[in-house]
Nucleic acid binder design. Structure first.
Lengths: 216, 216
DNA sequence: TAGATTGTTAATCGATTAACAATC
DNA sequence: TAGATTGTTAATCGATTAACAATC
């Protein structure tokens, strides 16, 4: 089943889909029934042209002279993103960040289900984290296979990240979301998203400097 | 003092700077002395052309027939990013994510200094978090002014995010790094970076679906 | 019907890649 | 010097914006 009318969807468009979904969700909450591309685009700070071009990758969702039915478009975008599916996840690395993500409520709400948390530190293994007991990383490979895990979240120190990724790939994982500050290497059929938090602070630093705030 | 040769640097280039810095840092660690644009670009999975174009925004750092001196280029990029500066930060929202970020060691290493953590929950106020005692959000505005805070990190629920941002702006903050799953609005002179973690999972979902993994 | 707004084609803008003269 | 590699200009590619016929 293909959502796309033809060809591949540019990454730059894919990245905007969650934003559309968020703004439409807010309109749904406010019980707004219809919206024009112009109005929605203004809210989002993009051009109406871009919005219509983006939607055009996936089909026709509007009605001339009327605009879009908010609820329908919201549902459509959700379907395009794939939110009707459920994905099983594991977190490897039960440090501060791993624990924070394990407790993040917005994930399960959207069908991203945390099935296990792993660490190498004996002091952490066995501890309870919400519904999940922290397990020994030795059991990771088997767990991924048995529990049909689709997404692996890496929150270990950068020295261990590639090794963890290799185990995940070997076990047949489909996607990796890496928070370690290093670019891990995986085969091209694995979906990989890097979340380099420290990089974002550097972008902030550069932009501050550019604005002339170098001295405080 | 301007780093840029002329005009504005495209955001797409700015976002690549931390990546250059990371890879050069690894070469420094491995005591590599020189590197050509081709070699570095191959490591990073980009084209040598792009690398040279990017550097061209900031000056001339190489030597024909030789390439780049790794240590020098590493230092230069650090300077361009602004890493010789120190920035004072606060975190508002001492939940799981706020606490995880407060304990993240890679920030202070680069001159991003956490000066205070705030929350509205009386049960959390007064608790110690590493070097920081959690303070009442009522004191936030004054604290930002007195302690010369440049960067505000928002890790509160989405309902409270805009309000916290408003306080920060009123107090004269220069940059905001927002983790709440909502686009906050700030005046154009404020540097704003949104970190929508749930959005990233949606991108993963779309890409998995695109690859034909919709059913597990 | 008249007005509004879409879907889509064409024009423009910006970013990436290719190519090569300059030069270490 | 000959070979390697930069800095930079020109060519290409892709994404955004503008424009408008189709139509609700």
């Amino acid at each position: 089943m293909r959502d796309t009318k033809e060809g591949r969807v540019p990454m730059v468009v894919i990245k905007r889909l969650p934003k559309y979904y968020r703004y439409l969700g807010e309109l749904v909450e406010h019980k707004v029934e219809r919206v024009s591309s112009q109005t929605l685009a203004d809210m989002m700070g993009i051009s109406a042209s871009q919005l219509r071009q983006d939607l055009n990758h996936f089909g026709e969702f509007g009605q001339q002279g009327y605009g879009y039915r908010v609820e329908d478009l919201y549902q459509e975008i959700g379907r395009i993103i794939g939110l009707e599916n459920e994905y099983n996840m594991v977190i490897v690395g039960a440090g501060n960040l791993g624990q924070a993500l394990a407790n993040y409520p917005n994930f399960s709400k959207r069908g991203f289900l945390l099935k296990g948390v792993f660490d190498i530190n004996p002091k952490l293994i066995g501890l309870k984290l919400r519904d999940n007991e922290i397990m020994d990383i030795d059991h990771l490979e088997q767990f991924i296979q048995k529990e049909n895990i689709a997404i692996g979240i890496i929150t270990v120190p950068k020295e261990a990240a590639q090794e963890v990724a290799d185990i995940m790939v070997r076990a047949g994982i489909k996607a990796i979301w890496n928070f370690a500050p290093v670019d891990i290497k995986v085969p091209p059929e694995i979906v990989l998203e890097n979340e380099h938090l420290a990089d974002r602070l550097m972008v902030i630093s550069f932009r501050l400097k550019e604005l002339g705030f170098e001295e405080d």
